[in-house]
Computed example of a mutant assay.
Amino acid sequence: MSGQIVVINGTSGAGKTTTCATLARHSPDPYLMFGMDLLAGTLLPARYTMFGAMKEQGYQPTAYGPVCMQALSAMHAMIAAASRTGQSVVVDHLMFVDPPVLQDAVWRMEGVPVLFVNLKPSWDVLEKRVTTREISFIPPPIQEAMAAAGPEIVQAFAEQLGAVTPWFYEHAYANEIYDLELDSSAMTPEQVCQRIEARLAEGPGTAFARLRERHPKPF
């Protein structure tokens, strides 16, 4: 029996990471946590991160180079493979339509059970979260790239994050097909996870199948 995949979409500050951790902690099923934060912050070598020398080929907040897109395809395939072994996975993600991250995900996860959840806080709450957020944990590859970039980079990072928030808000929510949509600015993480568990109890998600009808296979 395939493991359940729960994909949590949302922009930075929407509560994806907290939701993934809360679901994994409280669910009776053992969930692995995977996703965009782990990929871009830990798994990609420092030179391909947003402060690295080869960032144009890798990950930048508003542009994904060929190395980043290949890594995303591999991540989607790994998540599907884990499900086929019976392992459940909860995934934090930015399911952009452009670049075609969503299209790659829905086709590489064909044939396994996926619940697609959208966390969309109000713009006012999101803006406040992003501008007041402290950068408390920075993964080692990002630390390495930031150290090479110079001591002013932390402030530049915070300013860049604030500047691209409107772009993220538009692009992260360009898709309108989900199994469950929640206003995470009006709910606690526990309440969000209760709604996810309740939707899982209703039956399989259908959003990815509907998205495959809309988007042709990109590979």
Results as ranks from 00 to 15, higher is better:
residue 202 E to T: 02
residue 193 C to L: 07
residue 57 Q to N: 06
residue 165 T to G: 03
residue 168 F to L: 12
residue 17 T to A: 05
residue 10 G to V: 11
residue 108 R to D: 04
residue 122 S to E: 11
residue 172 A to P: 03
residue 14 A to N: 01
residue 84 R to S: 11
residue 5 I to Q: 00
residue 35 G to D: 04
residue 149 A to D: 07
residue 170 E to F: 00
residue 6 V to S: 01
residue 45 P to E: 02
residue 199 R to D: 14
residue 77 A to S: 13
residue 200 L to I: 11
residue 166 P to H: 05
residue 182 L to S: 03
residue 91 V to W: 06
residue 170 E to A: 12
residue 149 A to Y: 07
residue 186 A to Y: 03
residue 208 F to D: 06
residue 115 L to G: 05
residue 130 V to G: 13
residue 196 I to T: 15
residue 132 T to N: 12
residue 162 G to L: 00
residue 160 Q to G: 09
residue 94 L to F: 11
residue 36 M to T: 15
residue 171 H to F: 05
residue 155 Q to E: 11
residue 34 F to K: 00
residue 43 L to E: 05
residue 206 T to L: 13
residue 93 H to S: 14
residue 116 F to S: 07
residue 119 L to P: 11
residue 107 W to V: 02
residue 137 F to P: 06
residue 68 C to Y: 12
residue 100 P to L: 03
residue 24 A to D: 06
residue 66 P to G: 09
residue 56 E to G: 10
residue 33 M to L: 12
residue 50 M to K: 14
residue 83 S to W: 07
residue 45 P to Y: 02
residue 164 V to D: 06
residue 204 P to E: 15
residue 119 L to Y: 04
residue 127 E to Y: 07
residue 178 Y to V: 08
residue 86 G to F: 08
residue 148 A to V: 00
residue 86 G to P: 05
residue 191 Q to C: 09
residue 89 V to P: 05
residue 22 T to A: 04
residue 4 Q to M: 13
residue 104 D to R: 10
residue 169 Y to P: 03
residue 79 I to G: 01
residue 164 V to L: 02
residue 70 Q to Y: 09
residue 52 G to W: 05
residue 209 A to P: 13
residue 16 K to H: 01
residue 199 R to W: 12
residue 116 F to Y: 15
residue 76 H to I: 05
residue 183 D to F: 04
residue 156 A to M: 10
residue 94 L to V: 15
residue 98 D to S: 11
residue 73 S to C: 14
residue 35 G to N: 06
residue 8 I to A: 00
residue 212 R to I: 09
residue 154 V to Y: 09
residue 172 A to I: 08
residue 62 T to A: 11
residue 193 C to R: 04
residue 70 Q to F: 14
residue 121 P to K: 03
residue 168 F to S: 08
residue 69 M to L: 15
residue 32 L to Y: 07
residue 62 T to K: 13
residue 145 A to K: 07
residue 101 V to E: 01
residue 65 G to C: 08
residue 175 N to L: 13
residue 27 S to A: 14
residue 212 R to Y: 14
residue 36 M to W: 10
residue 1 M to L: 07
residue 152 E to R: 10
residue 116 F to K: 01
residue 110 E to V: 08
residue 94 L to P: 02
residue 148 A to M: 11
residue 79 I to M: 12
residue 120 K to L: 08
residue 35 G to F: 09
residue 200 L to N: 05
residue 177 I to T: 13
residue 178 Y to E: 06
residue 206 T to Q: 15
residue 140 P to N: 09
residue 48 Y to W: 12
residue 5 I to G: 00
residue 206 T to E: 15
residue 88 S to Y: 02
residue 15 G to E: 01
residue 29 D to E: 13
residue 7 V to I: 11
residue 7 V to K: 00
residue 145 A to H: 02
residue 6 V to D: 02
residue 119 L to G: 04
residue 181 E to K: 09
residue 149 A to K: 10
